[in-house]
């Protein structure tokens, strides 16, 4: 660590600070993308950092894309399971089932 990087406001200090924020983003990336990071000064700082840091933005985009993909492939219920459930629900609601 250089002496300059310890002096607030210098380019080296800003680079060191941004590097630390990258680490923080990676540590909290799931919470950030899921909107689960509690509102705080730190959260605002990380959000601002992501806007200006391409690698952190990429990291967030990967998780967003993954979430979209998961939702796409896992959103359909198994047709047979659903059919059986609906049939059972109808029986329960009509009093036909012995448990109703």
């Amino acid at each position: 660590m250089t002496f300059e990087s310890r002096i607030p406001g210098t380019p080296a200090w800003r680079r060191r600070r941004e590097g630390k924020l990258c680490v923080e983003v990676v540590l909290h990336i799931d919470e950030i993308v899921d909107g689960e990071l509690p509102a705080s000064r730190k959260a605002k700082l990380l959000e601002k950092h992501i806007t200006g840091c391409s690698s952190c933005r990429d990291e967030a985009e990967v998780i967003h894309a993954l979430k979209r993909g998961i939702a796409r492939v896992a959103q359909d219920a198994d047709a047979q399971v659903l059919e059986h459930l609906n049939a059972l629900a109808r029986k329960l609601c009509s009093g036909e089932h012995h448990d109703a």
Partner: peptide, 18 residues
């Protein structure tokens, strides 16, 4: 049951599968 649970049948099918 009809109001609260029956609309959640697709959810239940998906979660049971998972």
């Amino acid at each position: 049951f009809e109001e609260l649970i029956v609309p959640e049948m697709p959810f239940l099918a998906r979660v049971a599968r998972s």
